[in-house]
């Protein structure tokens, strides 16, 4: 499970460099997210634009990654592909996370 952190002034954008967050990957994803979010900016955005598939285990791991953040840290999502957006919509988890439609605009804003 390859996660890449890009630090902007006030934002840590974590890009998932793999296509699937599924039952086989969920535990590793959660552990890597703990490592990637323990330091740095309090505003974290998970960039899912490379991810084409999330199942209920992957969804649970993303929720767990948010719950394991300490204190004032927050986790937003960006770049949801159609099948991933469907899982969030059906389970109403799209009401729990702030979801950014445009990861490129977000990066430019964070950098500028």
């Amino acid at each position: 499970m390859d996660l890449q952190s890009t630090y902007h002034n006030d934002m840590n954008i974590i890009t998932v460099a793999e296509a699937r967050i599924d039952a086989a990957a969920a535990i590793k994803f959660k552990d890597k997210m703990r490592d990637a979010t323990s330091q740095g900016p309090a505003h974290i955005v998970l960039d899912l634009s490379n991810v084409t598939f999330v199942d209920s285990s992957g969804l649970g791991a993303i929720v767990a990654a948010m719950k394991q953040l300490n204190g004032e840290r927050r986790l937003d999502l960006a770049g949801l592909t159609p099948d991933v957006a469907k899982v969030f919509r059906l389970t109403r988890m799209d009401t729990v996370f702030v979801i950014h439609d445009d990861i490129i605009a977000l990066k430019m804003h964070a950098t500028g």
Partner: peptide, 19 residues
């Protein structure tokens, strides 16, 4: 599973049969 509670009570599973 209920997605409306506080952060620490959010469900991390139980979505399978619903989906």
């Amino acid at each position: 599973p209920d997605p409306s509670g506080p952060r620490n009570d959010l469900p991390e599973g139980g979505f399978g049969w619903f989906l």
